[in-house]
């Protein structure tokens, strides 16, 4: 029963990570690529780490040796680190791209460009 859950989590996570890579290749400009690259890898990582945590918790319950429990705690900390750093990094790249003069392709509206021109 738990093995099926682990397999399902692995498949969902791998699907979203593959989707992120395809999004990187298919979208037209930096901002839309960031959409794909950030959201899908974060969501996929949640599921892949979740499968590792569930598998190790089951090992811990079966064998009651502490090392699988340590592994799942550390995986959880790595997951929290990914969750905090990934969107922040995406924000930094988007801001840097806009300030270095790359405008969104096929944009309908661009408030930031207007405001920055108004300041000058």
């Amino acid at each position: 029963m738990i093995e099926i859950l682990v397999y399902a989590f692995l498949i969902i996570g791998l699907t979203f990570n593959l989707l992120a890579s395809i999004a990187l290749l298919r979208f037209p400009d930096v901002y839309t690529r960031l959409h794909g690259g950030t959201k899908c890898t974060t969501f996929g990582s949640i599921f892949l780490c979740g499968s590792v945590i569930i598998y190790n918790l089951r090992e811990w319950l079966l064998t009651s040796s502490p090392s699988p429990l340590i592994m799942s705690i550390h995986t959880f900390i790595a997951l929290v680190a990914i969750l905090i750093t990934n969107p922040t990094g995406a924000h930094a790249i988007a801001r840097a791209a806009h300030r270095s003069g790359i405008m969104p392709a096929r944009a309908v509206v661009d408030d930031l460009k207007k405001d920055r021109e108004g300041e000058r």
């Binding site: 996570g13 890579s21 990187l24 690529r33 690259g37 950030t38 974060t42 990582s45 790595a78 790249i93």
Partner: peptide, 15 residues
């Protein structure tokens, strides 16, 4: 952006 994505994928594959 590509490098950032590679970093996340490397972290997950290490786990």
């Amino acid at each position: 952006v590509g490098l950032d994505t590679i970093n996340t994928l490397v972290i997950v594959s290490m786990i």
